[in-house]
Structure formats: C-alpha cells, structure tokens
Design a protein around this nucleic acid. Structure first.
Lengths: 217, 217
DNA sequence: ATCATGTATTTTGTATACAAATAGAAAGTA
DNA sequence: TACTTTCTATTTGTATACAAAATACATGAT
C-alpha cells in the first residue's frame, strides 16, 4: 500500500526549478541581476548540469534570460511588459470566470465563497500578507474551476511572473479597498453563476490592478 | 559595417531546440513515441548535454514529456487537450483582433488584406499546402498587430502545438469552404477596424475549427 | 589622461565518464 | 501456464574535465 500518490516523481530537476523560481519570485534574486552559477550550485548542493537544465526551464517560463556566452540574468520586466501581461491575464481570467460559471459544482463555488469570506476577515484586520496569499489562491482556484488545463497553466505562469509587482497594488489603503470591492462584485456574480458578468468583473479587476500598480513601476 | 543585426546569437541551444521542435511539429517524431537520445544526438551531431537542455525547453513549451528516469516522449494530445487549447486560442485571438483594430497602422492592415487576397487565390486553385501555410502566417501576423508580446508568444505556442491537428480541418471541401467564409468575415471587420466584430469573428473561427477537426481525433 | 592592444583570469559551453535506475530476459517456483 | 525473482543490458541522471569565449586588467602609445 502506498500512502502518497501525490508527491511521486519530484525529480531533482523539478526541485531545482522550484527553488530557483521561488528565489526569483520572492525577490531574493533581484530583477536584472546576474545569476552566479558557481554561487547558486554551491548553495543548492547540485552540480552544474542539473542547474543549467533548470535555467532552461525557467527561461522558457519567462523568468530568466539566457544570453549565449554571457550568462543568465533574472528577467526584469519593463512597464510595457507588465501592461501587456496584465492585458492578457485579464482576458484569460475573463474566460476562466465564464467557464467556471458553466462547469463548477455547487460545492466548488461554496468553497471559493468561503475562501473569499476568510479573505474579507483578513481585510477587516488589515493583515496584508495573509490577504495577499489568499488573493493569489482565489485567482488560481477560480481559474481551476474552468476545467481547462492550458488555461490554468498560462494563468499560473503570468500570475507567478507578476507576483511581486501585484503586491505593490495593495500598498495604498484606497487601492486595497478598491481591490476588495472588485472581489465583492466577482463573488456576487459567481454566486449567481452569471458567467458574462463574472467574466467582466474579473477583466475589470485586472484592469484596475494596472491602474493601481502603474505608477510604482 | 554589419549587414545582419537580425541573425545574431543563434546559439547551439536555439538551433537544437528549433530542429527538434520542427521534427515534432512536422510529425517526423510521432506523438507518443519515445525520443531516442542516442539516435538523435547522433543525427544532430551534438552531445547529450545541449540536447538534454533543449528537451527541457521543449518540455516547458508543452511539446515533450519528460518522465524522471524513464526518458522523454513526444507529447500526445488528447481530445480534451485539443478542445481546451482551441478554447484558449480562440479567446486569445479574440483579444488580438480587438487590439489590432486599435493599434495597427493602415499599412499593416493593407498588408494583411493583401495576404488574405493571395490566400483566396490559392483557395480558388485548391492549392492546399500553400493555403495552409499562408493561413498560419495570417493568424500570426494578425496577432502581432496587437503589439502585445506575451500575447504573441502564447498564440505562437498554441498554434505550433496544434499545427498538425489543424491541417486536418481543411480536408473536407465543405470544411475548407467554411474556413474561407470565416476569413472573409474577419477581413471585412478588419478593414473597418471594427474591433469587437473582428474579435467575435476570430473567436467564432476557432470554435468552428473545433467542429471541423473534432471527429478526426 | 585616453584609448588601443595584448595578456591573464574568470566564466560559460560542451563532451565525456561514471553512477544510478529501469526494463527486459532468463530461470526458478507454485 | 502464470507468476516471481534474479541477473544483465541499456538507458538515464549527474559530476567533472576540458575547450572556448568573454571579461578584467595591465601595459604602452598618442
């Protein structure tokens, strides 16, 4: 009898990829900075071969830039990059919202509403970090309800790449309040399974996100 | 004086990636089949290290599956994969169409209309392969007019992965005629810069693509 | 001082060697 | 015969060594 069917196959490659990805997303490796191979393989305790394979994966994900013969750097997003990515993300989440209304079970929706309510509790207490994390999860899980795997993957990729930038968006109290209002509208539409309205609400939410972050870039 | 600023930096990695990608897209490496490392590195004349790095890139693009300790295979798309990917592609091209109407220059549009006209000449002569290639180019170039880089990348990725499948869609004469009608509608909207209508036309076109290919899967 | 040129050092890229894991074949057992 | 079990051959994964390129530095000319 096997206890965990979940954790199977965490290859070294996957481990290195997710560790380095985290270092980038958390900002420990700064955008634009050189990736010091010698230093990192030492810290991670792996050799160059798997590390370099991991860099290729991260480059394909858009987190790392590999310039031939001159090493790798953490990809730095321009203002235009962020705008473009949010434009696409908003549109993808619009689709996700519409599909979720068609395909999610009542229980799926109830669980998401519950997550939303817990988020609102955090907002009431102005616990910024827990709210932020729940927010990421809310978007991921709503997208998952679309039952569309490629859509989920693309949403996850964009969300990861924009993670640090979006944290900025809740800095000003009035911005945070705006994001909360967006979420209320989204959840109201979701409860009624009004796909077009939820789609619109999600697209609007991402458009507003741009308004909330653009001046900090 | 330098004559080509374009071709710079075709690293070995990039070359191997595009060669293997082509082998997969052309169907020379069959979906589901094992990728014989020894055989391919011999044919490509490279060693295992750069070849395996290329596999990681292709895996991140979704063309290859790497199962730890049991090698790589060409990713085989399920019917559901194709449906999901077309669902997303249609939605992305809808966005691309809307943005193109807002952002493209008159000349950009004229050039695309010209490509369309050349396509129609091919259709009149029932030259299937040239039509097919021009069709791929039409979708790529229309997407490029969105001036949104991540959108282009995602469209290109989905289009590449679906390339072989979509070729099927023009097999029946009435299906081909349907695709041509879709394109006429798209070009009409583009000429008038009617973004919402073009977006709708593109989304519809991809939905119809699904109807045209689904029974062959 | 500035710039160019040449040299040393470091970093990156690729091949290969070795270790580990897997799949396949052969032999044994029920 | 079906089912293990063991052994072997092959394939895969990782480390390392060597080659090639780029960068940093020093020297000398203008």
């Amino acid at each position: 009898m096997v206890s965990s069917l979940e954790i199977e196959n965490r290859s070294l490659h996957d481990q290195v990829v997710s560790k380095v990805r985290d270092l980038i997303i958390e900002g420990i490796l700064e955008p634009g900075s050189r990736i010091d191979e010698a230093d990192l393989i030492q810290k991670l305790g792996v050799s160059r071969t798997p590390f370099r394979e991991a860099l290729r994966t991260l480059a394909a994900e858009g987190l790392v830039i590999v310039r031939p013969s001159r090493g790798s750097t953490v990809r730095k997003l321009t203002t235009e990059d962020v705008f473009s990515m949010l434009e696409v993300l908003g549109h993808l989440e619009q689709l996700a919202g519409e599909l979720a209304c068609q395909r999610a079970s009542d229980q799926d929706i109830a669980e998401l509403v519950d997550l939303h309510n817990r988020m609102m509790t955090r907002y009431a207490a102005r616990d910024r970090m827990p709210y932020y994390k729940m927010n990421q999860e809310f978007h991921s899980r709503l997208t998952a309800l679309s039952q569309n795997q490629p859509l989920q993957e693309m949403q996850a990729n964009l969300q990861a790449r924009l993670k640090r930038i979006r944290y900025i968006g809740n800095e000003k109290p009035e911005y945070w309040a705006g994001a909360v209002a967006d979420h209320e509208a989204m959840v109201a539409a979701l409860k009624e399974r009004d796909g077009p309205r939820l789609g619109q609400a999600m697209a609007t939410h991402i458009k507003n996100t741009w308004e909330r972050v653009k001046d900090s870039l």
